[in-house]
Amino acid sequence: MAKAAAGFAEVRQIDAGLLNVGYVDAGPPDGEPVILLHGWPYDIHSFVDVVPALTAAGYRVVLPYLRGYGSTRFLADDAMRNGEPAAMALDLIALMDALKIDTAKLAGFDWGARTADVVAALWPERCRGLVSVSGYLIDGQASGRVPLPPKAEFAWWYQYYFATERGREGYDKNRRDFAKLIWQTASPRWTFDDATFERSAAAFDNPDHVDIVIHNYRWRLALADGEPRYDEIEQRLAAKPKINVPSISLEGDANGAPHLEPTVYGKQFAGQYEHRMVGGGVGHNLPQEAPQAFADAVMQV
């Protein structure tokens, strides 16, 4: 059973773009920067066992809470609680600017992998290398309108639940139970103790969390509008731009979350590229379930 290791000693705050971002900054300040990006419903502790391996190798490791998680807050009360991929990518660019990081290795899973993919595709000068769990995750609203085979639709059950007001209310009232169910189904062979789960679940108490999650999934199905400021970027993403930076994609052999085979998305990586299957019953939360494999990919990309 995975037991909770020690958490992070200090979470810092910095104004970046639309947000005051909560983040961990570990390792030598002059080390090569690596930014690790978590997904839903997880938080920065997915990387708690990855960070020591990277800092020991001399990397500066930055772990931000995404909008709607942990101590990250909007600077303006009237800002739209927007979960669009373009918004999250610009959050990352703004954070890099605020931290005076010109370029970094980017690595993540789930929402974090999508964010890293977007930055690598549209702002390659900001990305020295990419590690993306489940590979190429860039898409547009148009594809969200296309029906999938029943088995694939079944795997996305929560997306349709979130499309209803009942789903919004249910998720708000049952954040922890909902997240634990996703952890169990997305990583069916990963056993974790209560302390490990609760350490991450605290991030879902963010006052914007539900709004961000609901908007993210409704936007994907074209059931919610985005913001005009992101339209041009979303149009570019809908065209599925290729990623030219050096990249490694990872997949756990027991990933229970919806995901494509690398034979489907591999052609989207036009630069130096390698896919690695991580065995041993590893599920969706790959950096927490297989931290050494994840850290090795970051160091080797």
Rank of each mutant, 00 (worst) to 15 (best):
A79M: 06
R81F: 09
N82D: 14
G83Q: 07
E84M: 10
E84V: 12
E84N: 02
P85Y: 03
A86R: 05
A89C: 07
L90N: 12
D91Q: 04
D91E: 11
L92A: 05
L92Y: 10
I93K: 14
I93Y: 05
A94M: 02
A94L: 00
A94R: 08
A94Y: 01
L95I: 08
L95M: 05
D97K: 02
A98D: 03
L99H: 08
L99M: 08
L99F: 11
L99T: 03
T103D: 07
T103K: 15
K105I: 15
K105N: 00
L106Y: 07
L106I: 09
A107H: 05
G108Q: 03
W111V: 05
W111F: 11
R114L: 06
T115D: 15
D117C: 15
D117V: 07
D117L: 05
V119T: 13
L122I: 12
E125A: 15
E125Y: 09
E125Q: 15
R126P: 01
C127F: 11
C127P: 11
L130I: 12
L130E: 04
L130R: 12
S132V: 04
S132N: 03
V133N: 13
G135Y: 04
Y136F: 13
Y136Q: 09
I138L: 10
S143Q: 08
P149M: 13
P149I: 12
P150F: 07
A152T: 14
A152M: 10
E153R: 15
A155H: 14
W157N: 07
W157C: 02
Y158I: 14
Q159T: 12
Q159G: 14
F162Q: 11
A163E: 14
T164A: 13
R168A: 01
G170I: 06
G170W: 09
Y171V: 13
Y171S: 10
Y171N: 05
D172I: 01
K173L: 04
K173H: 06
N174I: 04
N174A: 04
R175F: 05
R176W: 02
R176V: 08
D177P: 03
D177Y: 12
D177N: 15
A179N: 02
A179D: 00
K180P: 01
I182H: 06
W183E: 05
Q184P: 03
T185S: 15
A186C: 13
S187K: 03
S187M: 01
P188D: 05
P188H: 09
R189Y: 08
W190M: 13
D193W: 06
T196W: 12
T196Y: 11
R199W: 01
R199Y: 00
R199K: 06
A201E: 10
D205F: 07
D205H: 11
D205Y: 09
D205S: 14
N206K: 11
D208A: 13
V210A: 10
I212N: 03
I212A: 07
V213A: 14
V213L: 13
I214Q: 00
N216H: 11
Y217A: 11
R218I: 05
R220D: 02
L221S: 07
L221K: 13
A222T: 09
A222C: 11
A222R: 04
L223F: 06
L223S: 13
L223A: 15
L223H: 08
